[in-house]
Design a protein around this nucleic acid. Structure first.
Lengths: 210, 210
DNA sequence: CATAATATGTTGCTTTTGCAACGGAAAATA
DNA sequence: TATTTTCCGTTGCAAAAGCAACATATTATG
């Protein structure tokens, strides 16, 4: 998000040199990849939206991360310790670059342009991921559904530089993202409207407080 | 944790060259640093234990991260958007290296050994942080206090390669780490004992299931 | 060692959340 | 366009979690 690097050029080089990579298109709702230990797959979302989703043994679905253009994902970011399924699902038509690495920070033997760019830009991209994850943690540590909603709305408001913004999720998915029950979230959403904190027009939220 | 880099040597060089850094000692319960926007401070915990703690407007205390030897912290990892206080508190006697950076990934003009090592090792250290944060998120997305406890215990069990392990937290702090009410957590802990899931001897937990 | 401070353990009560179920709206698909 | 599927919105009831208060144990500290 706050990357001051030339990601467009990076992506371009990423796509045009070296062999251990592959570009693929996906339609909405297709599974882009699953996280499997030791496969060493790194992915970049070139276009579209996708979610990292976990299905646990109780049947709960959790949206672990929400990815948009230029997001990095793959099991390199994950220490896989559970038997839970971890899937990346396309939420729109997507273009994804897959890359299999030996050592993620080392240049390949070919000394190709792609790897030069990768090792140059990867640290900053990963740092961006850290700040994203820290924001996610701030959301999840809110103690009530109301606080989670308000914190999330405030975040979107800041990002959009406006008190009025579109939700990037369906309400069903928002509940899975905040890790709460959908009907309980709907109830809280209604209370927030009744208490004059927000207005909701379709998929658009308008914050009414200071 | 899974860093296959020579962190001891890194730390050594970190300590012995270049000027924009400072080594300090802290006693238990002292505040090591607070997160302040745009100060560009990066810290490495050379020794001891420390917590990143957030105090919110409702008076809740949350342990955002728990740091041990060689952990990286500082506002570079954080997009500070709230008015909440973010403090790093020493949980034992600590030695901390502070470093003020201009551009975190660029070598300084001196071309010193410290910066050479920093830019070499930082990416891997940050990647480790990502995997830590992802585990933290997995914990926090558990839907009940029971599931949070069991997930956390399972994690410690894996780390210690044993069904029996010491808690690195007081129970009060554990509640703040899992983002739940302490008394509710104590109740759940009792139920876990009664239901035969765990045994608890002082600060030691023993897992009794498969 | 005495005393203060902090942590553990417990409980009754209240509030919040989850669960299950349903009808209607909207969107996807044949 | 008709029909199926998914999503939205709601509710009653049950379960879980939070709050407040307290007693006891343990740990720091003068």
């Amino acid at each position: 998000m706050n990357a001051n690097i030339d990601i467009e050029n990076f992506i371009l080089d990423f796509s045009n040199s070296c062999q251990k990579k592959q570009k693929k298109n996906f339609s909405k709702n297709e599974v882009i990849t699953t996280y499997i230990k030791n496969r060493n797959q790194l992915c970049i979302l070139l276009d579209g939206y996708a979610d990292l989703v976990r299905y646990d043994l109780n049947g709960n679905r959790t949206i672990v991360e929400h990815f948009s253009k230029n997001a990095l994902f793959g099991e390199v970011f994950y220490t896989i310790t559970t038997n839970n399924e971890l899937l990346v699902e396309a939420k729109s038509n997507c273009t994804v670059l897959f890359y299999i690495y030996d050592d993620i920070f080392h240049k390949c033997s070919n000394n190709c342009k792609f790897h030069e760019n990768l090792s140059e830009n990867l640290p900053q991209l990963i740092l961006n991921k850290v700040t994203d994850l820290n924001m996610r943690i701030e959301l999840l540590t809110q103690r009530s559904t109301r606080d989670k909603l308000l914190r999330y709305f405030s975040l979107l408001s800041t990002r959009n530089l406006s008190k009025s913004f579109e939700l990037p999720f369906s309400l069903t998915d928002l509940a899975d993202y905040l890790s709460v029950d959908r009907s309980a979230m709907m109830r809280e959403l209604k209370l927030l409207k009744e208490d004059g904190f927000i207005e909701k027009v379709g998929n658009r939220i308008i914050l009414l407080y200071k």
